[in-house]
């Protein structure tokens, strides 16, 4: 069987032409992104959007509207996204008021979830703070409407019309209380040789025992003071924070928003099953009434 040279050359020309066309359409003059949706925003802009959603929620307490807006960002788990953002904001030293608004919205979303995350007692947390430290509208699928740059050549033009929709109406429900005083509901020595010696674990929850991220805790001892925040170790719980106590030093722990403090806390003496002494830790729980 023989194939005509012209046919081979034509096929080759077809492939070359296709390649050139593809390079032109993808590299030289790709379609321009206009009329895009929030879910394709850069991550830092998504943070800006979440902050704005949280600020609006702090004003109108409309959780449905906030949820609808969060859905636009396409986060697989808006609660996790908000919690992680609150932690990033804390770490970046952003104003506490802004962090609290994001944390408040996260907490409100968590209340709609059936299971609260509790830190596992068997996990070995890595202490974050030590006394030595001085011391964070519409709802639719993603499809960027695309309109090429205007040129004299024929180019694809997308004409997708904006959705004429608005987000749900605010329902003017009562605004959640920011900064309500906390009560000390648990104060227990922890003798676990797997844990860091002198580990002070603090858990902050709301009335429904759901953990609250971004809550500020003040730890005071005779020669110093430390401020720590919940939520910086989400793997141990969004309302979890910890601190390393020095053996023999008495500490007072309270929430920055006020409430009952835990006083005269110190690292307990513990003994292993082999009779070896070691320094234990403490676990205290604050609850927002």
């Amino acid at each position: 069987m023989t194939v005509k040279p012209t046919l081979i050359a034509s096929l080759f020309a077809l492939l070359v032409g296709f390649g050139i066309g593809l390079a032109y359409a993808w590299v030289i003059l790709p379609v321009q992104s206009v009329d895009a949706q929030p879910r394709v925003l850069r991550n830092d802009f998504k943070d800006d959007f979440r902050s704005a959603i949280a600020a609006a929620y702090a004003s109108n307490a409309d959780l449905e509207r906030a949820r609808s807006r969060l859905d636009q960002l396409g986060d697989p788990d808006p609660y996790q996204a908000l919690s992680a953002q609150a932690q990033r904001m804390l770490a970046a030293g952003e104003p506490m008021e802004s962090v609290q608004k994001v944390a408040l919205l996260a907490s409100a979303l968590q209340e709609m979830q059936p299971v609260a995350i509790e830190p596992s007692a068997t996990e070995t947390p890595v202490p974050l703070n030590t006394p030595e430290e001085t011391g964070q509208p519409p709802d639719s699928e993603t499809d960027t409407a695309e309109t090429p740059e205007p040129t004299t050549e024929a180019e694809p033009v997308s004409t997708s019309a904006p959705a004429m929709t608005t987000t749900p109406r605010p329902s003017r429900t009562p605004t959640p209380t920011l900064g309500a005083p906390y009560q000390l509901v648990g104060e227990d020595p922890v003798c676990d040789p797997e844990l860091e010696e002198g580990l002070l674990q603090v858990v902050v929850t709301d009335l429904s025992r759901r953990q609250i991220p971004g809550a500020e805790i003040i730890i005071v001892w005779n020669s110093g003071e430390e401020h720590i925040f919940t939520g910086l170790k989400p793997e141990l719980g969004h309302g979890y924070a910890d601190f390393l106590m020095t053996p023999g030093v008495a500490y007072s722990v309270r929430m920055a928003d006020g409430g009952t403090p835990a006083s005269e806390l110190s690292a307990p003496d513990c003994t292993t099953t082999d009779g070896e002494p070691y320094v234990g830790g403490m676990r205290i729980t604050f609850q927002q009434p």
């Binding site: 992104s33 206009v34 009329d35 895009a36 949706q37 929030p38 394709v40 925003l41 850069r42 991550n43 802009f45 800006d48 959007f49 636009q72 509208p137 519409p138 960027t144 409407a145 904006p162 959705a163 004429m164 929709t165």
Partner: peptide, 13 residues
């Protein structure tokens, strides 16, 4: 496109 800036968001957003 991913990682876009908000100035190209659709007007309703």
């Amino acid at each position: 496109y991913t990682d876009i800036t908000p100035d190209v968001l659709r007007i309703d957003y």
